[in-house]
Simulated assay, not measured.
Amino acid sequence: MRKLQFLLAGVLLSFTSINAQDLENSTLWKIEGNGLDKASYLFGTIHITCDATLENDVMKALDETTQVVLEIDMDDPEMQTKMMKGIYMKEGKTLNDLVNEEDFAAIDSLFINNVGMSVKLMQNVKPFFLSSMLYPKFIDCPMQSFETELMKIATEQNEEVLGLETIEDQIEVFEIIPYEEQIKDLVRTAKDNLAYDKANFAKLLEIYKNENITAMQDFMNDDNYSSVADYQDILLDNRNKNWIPKIKEFAEDQATFFGVGAGHLAGENGVIQLLRDAGYTVTAVRAEED
């Protein structure tokens, strides 16, 4: 259940925005200026990976900061309860209401073969959350998560873990995006038995390894994930804008390590540009070290 909790909490972060803007290849950025007494850091994560080892520059940034802020407070003891309340479709909707018999059978077979249970047992779960249960099958290795590693370091350093938004905020996104749109990607996944998703995610992992946050945006502007591409403002842009005053508040209070999905970093509505627009100096750590 703990793994499922992290999976569902991270569902949004597997998708990235589409407004490309060239930035240095780096997932770690320093936030300075605009009245800050001490620098804070912004780290772009990927939630599903084969190797979530934190590199030396990231560890150094963690040592130089005194609290960790993720997209949501994943250390909240009530998070699982809050999440389970929000994963179900409203108004009594079920999967049968959204797909025909052939597509339902394909989805059911996919879940039996990959999750070990029939989707008939989860018919009232929102399609996006059903899709998230398949994410570990996108990689051919035991799943690791950068958020888990960051939380471990915070615990070792006796630092608090906080969030830029609540789990309720994230769940609300999937009420705005119509269920009929959400189901399209799941049907496609079922019909090719994860083939496209596995190949696509392997390419994404390579892009992340190269820390090319701009290429991540271009790569994820994919018609095969139409329900994501058509709702970028809801999934990313609006959330990024809502985070800026909260980042300001945290960073002014104390040196803070921010960890958010790497897809939130680049673009004209990405966190880096929005912080620059707000008056901060935001620089790529690796570009400085090179």
Results as ranks from 00 to 15, higher is better:
3 K>D: 07
9 A>D: 10
12 L>M: 14
14 S>W: 07
16 T>D: 09
18 I>A: 13
27 T>Q: 05
38 K>T: 08
43 F>W: 04
49 T>Y: 15
59 M>F: 04
70 L>M: 08
75 D>S: 13
77 P>M: 06
98 L>R: 03
98 L>E: 11
105 A>M: 14
106 A>P: 06
107 I>L: 12
108 D>F: 03
109 S>H: 15
110 L>I: 09
112 I>K: 14
112 I>N: 14
112 I>L: 13
112 I>H: 12
112 I>C: 08
113 N>M: 07
118 S>E: 12
124 N>D: 15
125 V>W: 04
127 P>T: 12
133 M>W: 10
134 L>A: 09
135 Y>F: 10
136 P>C: 03
140 D>T: 09
144 Q>F: 12
145 S>R: 05
152 K>G: 00
154 A>F: 00
157 Q>K: 15
163 G>L: 02
178 P>N: 05
181 E>T: 08
183 I>W: 08
184 K>A: 03
184 K>C: 03
194 L>A: 02
198 K>C: 11
199 A>E: 15
205 L>Q: 15
205 L>Y: 14
205 L>N: 11
206 E>K: 11
209 K>V: 03
220 M>G: 00
223 D>E: 13
223 D>W: 07
228 V>T: 00
229 A>H: 03
230 D>W: 00
230 D>I: 02
233 D>Y: 08
236 L>W: 10
238 N>P: 02
245 P>R: 09
247 I>K: 01
262 A>G: 04
263 G>V: 03
265 L>V: 02
266 A>F: 04
274 L>V: 07
280 Y>C: 03
281 T>N: 15
284 A>V: 07
289 E>V: 05
